[in-house]
Design a protein around this nucleic acid. Structure first.
Lengths: 209, 209
DNA sequence: CTATTTGAACTGACTGGTCAGTGCAAAAAC
DNA sequence: GTTTTTGCACTGACCAGTCAGTTCAAATAG
């Protein structure tokens, strides 16, 4: 009654293969894109037979959609946790944003392929998983928006800032800087990158230190 | 019929079909991605025969590579022009950055499909046009880096800022904010979006106006 | 303890369809 | 007369998805 024929529980074996398939798919799709990646490749990289892919997922697109949900779930959890931790410690909203920048960098550092893939697919239209993407995007950006709104309420931020736009810009700033870091200067430390973005966030670009 | 006129020695007719093919390809690839877009589709959308595509371009990838070069050429020219215009008018480096943000927004507003496609392909690896992308990326980011370095030299910016990283972050900020604007709040005006990003650039997020 | 049963998990050869790229003769444009 | 475009049939590679058959570990029986 434990592993097979479990009533609602996920059999361990099955979960393990799904995990292997996620890992294989995320790398390949990040490198080549969804359409250029074949199911055979994914199966081979995961070390399973092609049939297993279809035993575990209804189709190639479904595998991809579930992969997206899974990954963004991890990201938003991590962002939200960072913001809440800072606020509980009595930090300012700027400190919360800063903590979220760091959390974002940590995430991208740990899952670079997922981030790549996410950015590459985010603004495509006319695709099967469009609706999934929209939901998933909103979840991530909403975390940042919440902090911005909180900051306006308590007077820490100007009432004139445009919440959705500023949130998107901040996300973009971190995303692109981090992808560049990974792709073109991987030797830099996370602290280094974080410091540069912190400075930009706090408007300490102009003027001497 | 001869609206574009003969700019260079190339035959006008040929240039016109190439232009039509660029326009058709950029939309389709932005929507669906490179691999999911077929040559037949491109030809049909451009209103030419499939054979014409191969008469004008060696292959589907070559068409795409030339499209990339063409588009990024337009972008960098526009950015550089904005920076130089501001500097000639005796503006500060911050003003130059601001002008480039606006130029970036104008470009994205005019060529949204190209921007989409560029972002989607930029961080992919293992693709045929990888080297083209690298060159083309460097050209665009370099314009921003130059302004930052100029600002450090004349004391307007802190010596501690990390030029390549800050440049990437700024590009990302504009890119992502603009794509979000296009995709999710297209009714907003360019001035509106520009104002929000300006505020972020100048660190006027915290504090009341 | 060993033998047998069960069924979820997995396999990989196979199928039907798609698509990049070719070849070419004839038409159109210049 | 030359360049460019057309139309269309054709090929060969590639690929998503299928399915009949196999594996194996836990459950049950003897």
């Amino acid at each position: 009654m434990e592993s097979s024929s479990a009533t609602s529980g996920a059999s361990t074996r099955r979960e393990a293969t799904r995990q292997k398939l996620y890992e294989a798919a995320v790398t390949l799709i990040a490198e080549q894109g969804f359409s250029a990646t074949t199911v055979d490749e994914i199966a081979e990289r995961a070390g399973v037979a092609k049939g297993t892919v279809y035993y575990n997922f209804a189709s190639k697109s479904v595998l991809f959609e579930e992969l997206l949900r899974h990954g963004v779930g991890l990201l938003t959890a991590s962002l939200r946790e960072a913001a809440e931790r800072t606020e509980k410690d009595g930090g300012t909203k700027v400190a919360a944003l800063d903590a979220m920048i760091r959390a974002g960098l940590v995430f991208i550092d740990r899952y670079p392929a997922f981030t790549q893939l996410y950015v590459a697919e985010l603004w495509r239209t006319n695709r099967a998983w469009q609706s999934t993407l929209l939901v998933v995007r909103q979840e991530a950006v909403a975390v940042v928006e919440d902090v911005l709104r909180g900051g306006i309420e308590n007077g820490e931020f100007s009432e004139e800032i445009d919440v959705p736009l500023t949130a998107a810009a901040l996300v973009g700033m971190v995303l692109v800087a981090a992808l560049d870091w990974q792709a073109f200067q991987p030797e830099r430390s996370l602290d280094d990158v974080h410091a540069a973005l912190s400075r930009l966030l706090q408007g300490r670009v102009s003027g001497r230190p």
